[in-house]
Amino acid sequence: MAALEADETAQKRAQTEQFSFDVDAPGLLTVTNESHDKPEAHQYVVTIDDVTEELMACTCPHHIHRNAFCKHMAAVENAIDDGTLDAFPSEDDDETEPDNCDCEGLNGFPCWPCVRTGRTELPN
């Protein structure tokens, strides 16, 4: 997937450590290593090319100082490959009506599922 190949150590660590992912924007992911006592001190941003969908970079010291494929990039690649992470979510996803929508019976007021999913905003 990426121009840099993940070395065996990075792949093993990506598979054995616990990571969480936040999609900040399409192709821009905050990766948190939840295996540490203070996960917030172990957050890095992984970027993915929006055309080729190849992993491009990570803000962790391993990638920056060694220009190496790091465990954060490997964790993102693994999560994308197994379908648990969508690094390029569609903007249309928020427009779809939730299965439990009840807006019709609320006289123009949005139901909570539509507000929670961002489909509709609460009126002022």
Rank of each mutant, 00 (worst) to 15 (best):
P113V: 09
Q18V: 08
K38E: 14
M56E: 14
A68L: 12
D99V: 10
T52V: 07
I64Y: 07
P26Q: 02
T32Q: 13
P113E: 06
P89M: 02
L85D: 00
T47D: 06
Q43N: 06
C60V: 01
R119E: 03
G83H: 05
C58R: 02
A75V: 04
R116A: 15
A3Y: 10
E34P: 02
G108T: 11
E95R: 13
E17R: 00
C101R: 10
D50W: 03
H36R: 13
L28M: 12
V51H: 09
P26G: 05
M73T: 00
A14N: 03
A74I: 08
M1W: 01
D50P: 14
N67I: 04
D86H: 04
Q11T: 15
C111F: 10
H65T: 11
T9Q: 12
L85H: 01
D92K: 10
M1N: 06
I48T: 06
T117E: 10
M73Q: 12
A2N: 06
H62A: 10
T96L: 13
R116W: 05
A57Q: 13
E104N: 09
D24K: 15
V45N: 01
G27W: 02
C70D: 08
D94E: 11
I80T: 06
K38R: 11
A3E: 13
L122I: 15
E121D: 14
C58H: 00
P89A: 04
M1S: 14
F19S: 00
T32K: 12
A79L: 06
R116V: 13
A68Y: 05
V76E: 00
A6R: 09
F21Q: 06
A75C: 10
K71S: 08
R116P: 01
